Amino acid sequence: MKILVLQGSARKKGHTATLTQAFVEGAKEAGHEVTVMNVANMDIHGCTGCEYCHTEGGGQCIQDDDMQQIYPLYDSADMIVIASPIYYGSFSGQMHCAIHRTYAIGKPASCKKMAMILDSGSSGVYAASERIYHGFLQGWYGVEDCGIFEYAGSSASSSQNLDELRQFGKSL
């Protein structure tokens, strides 16, 4: 299975990156092809709502930035995993830009499954991201919900949590 992970934290050794890596290790061990795109460190602009993609663009965004690297991966992935820290009650700004820009291609052609990995400095702050995931991403795409993994506080990347994500990756 081809798995695309959109990782939305700019902190290369932070909890989100560490949690994502544990999932990737498990998925690769199970024989899956995994690509991680660190959207927080890419040049991805927000959607301008210009509708070029749905008029003369034919599914191509008019903006020429790093999102062009993600589009073919997004469209060909069998599974998409969103991994993001929670800032001010939702995904990181960089993750929002990447998600919004998928508007250009619509539903990914090959995606059958989705999952989400979230972490925050405190618990109880995941509702907005859960709504986006269930209503738009997983719901509109009509794919299997493989789960939302939420971790909070300084123990977010504890060995127990990392093990849980490794096992999840292996179970796919």
Rank of each mutant, 00 (worst) to 15 (best):
M1C: 03
K2D: 14
I3L: 09
L6G: 06
Q7T: 12
G8W: 00
S9C: 05
A10C: 09
R11N: 13
R11I: 14
K12V: 14
G14L: 11
H15D: 10
H15E: 09
H15K: 12
L19A: 12
A22R: 03
F23D: 02
F23K: 04
V24Q: 08
E25K: 13
A27I: 09
A27N: 08
A27S: 10
A27G: 13
K28F: 01
H32D: 05
H32Y: 06
E33A: 13
V34Y: 05
T35H: 01
M37H: 04
D43A: 14
H45Y: 14
C47N: 06
C47I: 12
T48R: 07
T48K: 10
G49F: 02
G49K: 07
C50F: 05
C50T: 04
E51Q: 12
Y52D: 04
Y52A: 13
Y52H: 14
C53G: 04
C53I: 01
C53V: 02
E56Y: 01
G57D: 06
G58D: 11
G58H: 11
G59T: 08
C61I: 08
C61V: 08
Q63L: 15
D64T: 12
D65C: 11
M67K: 02
M67P: 08
M67F: 15
M67G: 07
M67E: 10
P72Y: 07
D75T: 03
D75I: 02
A77M: 02
I80W: 01
I80T: 11
V81T: 11
I82W: 10
A83W: 02
S84A: 12
P85L: 08
P85M: 08
Y87S: 06
Y88F: 15
F91W: 09
S92H: 05
Q94V: 11
Q94C: 05
M95T: 15
H96M: 10
H96Q: 13
C97W: 06
A98H: 03
H100Y: 11
R101M: 07
R101W: 03
T102K: 02
T102G: 03
Y103C: 11
A104S: 14
I105T: 13
I105W: 06
G106S: 04
P108Y: 02
A109F: 10
A109C: 00
S110K: 14
C111A: 15
M114T: 15
A115M: 09
I117Q: 00
G121T: 08
G121K: 07
G121R: 09
S122G: 14
G124I: 06
Y126Q: 11
Y126R: 00
A127E: 15
A128C: 07
A128S: 12
E130G: 01
E130P: 01
H134W: 01
H134Y: 10
F136C: 14
F136Y: 10
L137A: 05
L137H: 06
L137C: 06
L137Y: 06
L137V: 06
Q138M: 14
G139V: 03
Y141P: 00
Y141R: 01
G142C: 08
G142H: 05
G142R: 04
V143R: 03
E144R: 01
Y151Q: 07
G153D: 13
S154V: 12
N161H: 15
N161A: 14
L162Y: 06
Q167V: 14
F168H: 12
G169Y: 03
G169V: 12
K170P: 07
S171A: 15
